[in-house]
Amino acid sequence: MYAEEIAMPKTGYAPENARSATQPTGLASTEAGAAGYAGLDTWADAQILSAILHGQQRAIAAVGATLPAIAAAAGLAADAISGGGRLVYLASGSPALVSLGDALEIPQTYGVPRNRIVLIFAGGDAIFHNLTGAEEDDGAAAERAVADAALGPADCVLGISASGSTPFTVAGLAAAKAAGAKTVAIASNAGCPLFASGDVQVLLETGAEVIAGSTRMGAGTAQKAALNMISTLMGVRLGHVHDGMMVNVTADNDKLRARAARMIGQIARVDDKAAREALSRTGGAVKTAILVAAGAEGPDGARALLEETGDNLRRALDRLSGR
Rank of each mutant, 00 (worst) to 15 (best):
residue 221 T to S: 09
residue 208 A to F: 04
residue 84 G to S: 06
residue 113 P to N: 05
residue 223 Q to H: 14
residue 34 A to W: 12
residue 268 A to S: 14
residue 166 T to S: 05
residue 5 E to K: 12
residue 176 A to N: 03
residue 191 G to H: 01
residue 148 D to I: 07
residue 232 T to Q: 02
residue 70 I to A: 06
residue 126 A to D: 11
residue 98 V to E: 06
residue 88 V to P: 06
residue 231 S to L: 10
residue 6 I to R: 07
residue 174 A to R: 01
residue 226 A to T: 14
residue 161 S to A: 14
residue 137 D to N: 13
residue 71 A to P: 03
residue 318 D to S: 13
residue 266 Q to M: 11
residue 48 I to Q: 05
residue 175 A to F: 00
residue 191 G to Y: 00
residue 14 A to Q: 12
residue 157 V to C: 04
residue 301 G to A: 10
residue 71 A to S: 11
residue 166 T to I: 07
residue 19 R to L: 08
residue 85 G to K: 00
residue 310 G to H: 03
residue 68 P to M: 06
residue 51 A to P: 04
residue 180 G to Q: 00
residue 236 V to P: 03
residue 24 P to R: 07
residue 316 A to V: 12
residue 129 H to T: 15
residue 6 I to H: 05
residue 257 R to H: 12
residue 20 S to Y: 00
residue 30 T to M: 10
residue 320 L to R: 03
residue 195 F to Q: 04
residue 70 I to H: 08
residue 14 A to D: 15
residue 321 S to D: 10
residue 208 A to P: 05
residue 176 A to K: 00
residue 162 A to G: 10
residue 88 V to Q: 06
residue 9 P to D: 01
residue 72 A to I: 13
residue 29 S to Q: 07
residue 20 S to N: 05
residue 235 G to F: 02
residue 173 L to V: 00
residue 53 L to G: 02
residue 308 E to P: 12
residue 263 M to P: 07
residue 161 S to N: 07
residue 239 G to E: 08
residue 211 I to Q: 11
residue 80 A to N: 09
residue 175 A to V: 00
residue 51 A to E: 05
residue 125 D to C: 07
residue 124 G to L: 04
residue 148 D to S: 12
residue 98 V to T: 12
residue 188 S to R: 01
residue 294 A to H: 13
residue 202 V to W: 04
residue 301 G to P: 11
residue 217 M to Q: 09
residue 141 A to R: 08
residue 29 S to H: 05
residue 205 E to L: 11
residue 80 A to E: 07
residue 233 L to M: 11
residue 95 P to H: 06
residue 181 A to T: 02
residue 148 D to F: 15
residue 34 A to R: 12
residue 275 A to L: 02
residue 112 V to E: 12
residue 173 L to T: 00
residue 95 P to R: 09
residue 219 A to Y: 04
residue 240 H to T: 15
residue 145 A to V: 11
residue 215 T to V: 14
residue 282 T to A: 13
residue 255 K to L: 11
residue 188 S to I: 03
residue 95 P to T: 07
residue 138 D to M: 03
residue 279 L to K: 02
residue 183 T to G: 06
residue 65 A to D: 15
residue 315 R to W: 13
residue 31 E to K: 08
residue 142 A to S: 00
residue 65 A to W: 14
residue 269 R to T: 09
residue 249 V to F: 10
residue 89 Y to F: 14
residue 309 T to Q: 13
residue 21 A to C: 02
residue 38 A to F: 09
residue 177 K to Q: 00
residue 30 T to E: 09
residue 164 G to L: 10
residue 235 G to N: 03
residue 220 G to L: 06
residue 317 L to M: 13
residue 205 E to V: 06
residue 189 N to Y: 08
residue 93 G to M: 07
residue 318 D to L: 14
residue 103 A to F: 10
residue 220 G to Q: 08
residue 217 M to R: 04
residue 311 D to M: 01
residue 308 E to I: 15
residue 52 I to N: 06
residue 317 L to G: 10
residue 182 K to W: 01
residue 299 P to V: 00
residue 319 R to N: 09
residue 43 W to F: 13
residue 3 A to D: 15
residue 75 G to C: 03
residue 250 T to V: 15
residue 145 A to F: 07
residue 3 A to Q: 15
residue 287 K to Q: 12
residue 172 G to V: 00
residue 218 G to P: 05
residue 109 T to M: 14
residue 289 A to P: 01
residue 50 S to K: 01
residue 186 I to E: 04
residue 309 T to W: 05
